[in-house]
Design a protein around this nucleic acid. Structure first.
Length: 446
RNA sequence: GGAGGGAUCGCAUAGUGGCUGAGUGCGCCCGCCUGCUAAGCGGGUAGGGGGUGUAUAGCUCCCUCAUGGGUUCGAAUCCCAUUCCCUCCGCCA
């Protein structure tokens, strides 16, 4: 009946594990309400089901009695049988009137309980993996490794917003004119470079890493937002159409998760590896006032996303591979990056283990989060009702799902501009991208 | 946007109030038969939830014939709404 993030049975049988997960995440959820409602729900269900069973049995009997009664006119059925049938029929009819009324009452009550229970259940976050470091927030995340040397400069590196404006490839003023704050235009070589990055990343993951390319809708139904776990928590952070049931995707993770919603995948279908390019739309209400400078955080940005469905026992290694595939982009670009493991307090709602990848941006002087790779376990699969069979005829199980950017575009662009800038303000195009920008080697000539 | 038609167990279909959670064909699975295949014969072939079990074993009950309501003692079957699909017209990148 209720698709939840965590199975109701699991919560019922492991309330302490759930309680610990909530504590580790430093978050709250109506666990006790859930446990109470669950008991109530099951009592009601048993009662209503017993009555329904009675009604079903009576239904069969009344059908037979009807036939006996109808036959009476034609064949010379014994009068006694007829009388008996009529009497029994009336008796059942009266009894069933009462039973049906009672069922109706109970069903109403049951529906209310289910609705509340479901709403509460959807608020439970995923249970962190035992290997995730404990911590309260961002400051407790753990740097797992750093690769590549941050580039040394013999001049003061400029931030990308200066470089972009001087080169005429980022236009902030007109972005604001068109759409308001947190919008900008890319122009000329900037726009071309962005397009090149998308094409190159897609090619890399398809050709070298074996992912299947997908071009999904950028607007989806609300149900998809529940399935991928964006709702109910992130409602304030998403855009949607006021008249129709269209929600703008905040990440390709949403359509990719829901691709297989309500499906049972065939035994040989897993693992599925998808890569998709989409724009992403976010209100950024939660981050009002943060990162207003430059193109680091906008309401619209592009992203190339990796997504996997796999058998549960394989999700650990699939996560490592996913992180590695995202890092491969950083390596190929020749920019220093580091991998950070999120602590329990910073873990996303749907994730049981996550690693962020950060590119060094010398102009802003910070590590830029360009990817967040997560293993969601069976959490999303459960919500979106995605299952698979290990063998023909085997009972369906929930697969594990994983996602990660590879990479988020504007921040990658920031890193390129700031790392490849020259003393004269021009920017050298990374070698791997030159084939995608018509051989262009440098942006700006002075 | 307008006018029609449709939605049933993997596929195709039957089914106009109780004996139908549901027949048939195909596909698939297991047996039998059989030099090998094929044919033939027999059986099986949805998902979910509750209860009881150490049990992903059994047993048992309930729900689901697109979805949500309604009529009825009782609905795949009658009524209403919604969604999706198809055909035709209009419009459009």
């Amino acid at each position: 009946m209720m698709p939840a993030m965590l199975s109701l049975a699991f919560v019922r049988e492991n309330p302490d594990a759930v309680r610990k997960a909530l504590a580790d995440r430093h978050t709250e959820a109506p666990l006790d309400d859930i446990l109470g409602l669950d008991g109530h729900w099951r009592r009601l269900l048993q009662e209503v089901e017993a009555l329904r069973a009675e009604r079903n049995a009576a239904g069969g009997e009344m059908g037979q009695l009807n036939r006996i009664i109808k036959e009476q006119g034609k064949s010379s059925q014994a009068a006694a049988d007829y009388q008996q049938a009529v009497a029994r029929h009336d008796e059942l009819l009266e009894r069933m009137r009462q039973v049906s009324q009672r069922i109706e009452e109970l069903e109403g009550e049951l529906g209310g309980v289910e609705e509340r229970l479901n709403a509460f259940l959807l608020q439970l976050p995923n249970i962190p993996d035992a290997k995730v470091p404990l911590g309260e927030g961002e400051e407790d995340n753990v740097v797992v490794r750093t690769e590549g040397e941050p580039r040394a400069f013999d001049f003061e590196p400029r931030p990308h917003w200066e470089l972009g404006e001087r080169l005429g490839i980022i236009d902030f003023e007109r972005g604001v004119k068109l759409s308001g704050s947190r919008f900008y235009l890319l122009k000329g070589a900037g726009a071309h470079l962005q397009r090149a990055l998308i094409a190159w990343m897609l090619d890399l993951h398809v050709q070298k890493h074996g992912y299947s390319e997908v071009y999904p809708p950028f607007m989806v139904r609300e149900a998809c937002m529940w399935g991928a776990g964006q709702l109910p928590k992130l409602r304030e952070n998403m855009y949607h159409d006021a008249e129709e049931d269209f929600w703008f995707v905040p990440t390709a993770e949403v359509p990719l998760t829901n691709m297989h919603r309500d499906e049972i995948l065939e035994p040989d279908a897993l693992p599925l590896h998808y890569v998709a390019f989409t724009p992403c739309f976010r209100r950024e209400k939660m981050s009002a006032g943060r990162d207003v400078r430059g193109i680091k955080r906008g309401h619209q940005f592009d992203k190339v996303e990796l997504y996997k469905f796999c058998q549960p026992e394989r999700s650990g290694e699939e996560l490592q591979a996913l992180v590695n595939h995202a890092e491969e982009v950083c390596r190929a670009l020749g920019i220093a990056h580091r991998v950070v493991q999120l602590c329990t307090g910073d873990l996303g709602f749907t994730s049981l283990m996550s690693f962020d990848i950060e590119l060094w941006a010398p102009g802003c002087g910070e590590w830029l989060e360009v990817s967040s790779c997560s293993n969601c376990g069976d959490f999303q699969a459960r919500r979106a009702n995605i299952r698979f069979r290990r063998e023909k005829g085997a009972r369906p199980e929930f697969p594990h799902t994983l996602n990660g950017s590879a990479l988020a575009l504007p921040r990658t662009l920031i890193a390129i501009l700031e790392n490849y800038q020259q003393a004269d303000g021009s920017v050298v195009v990374p070698e791997v991208l030159r084939g995608y920008v018509g051989g262009l080697e440098r942006i700006g000539t002075w």
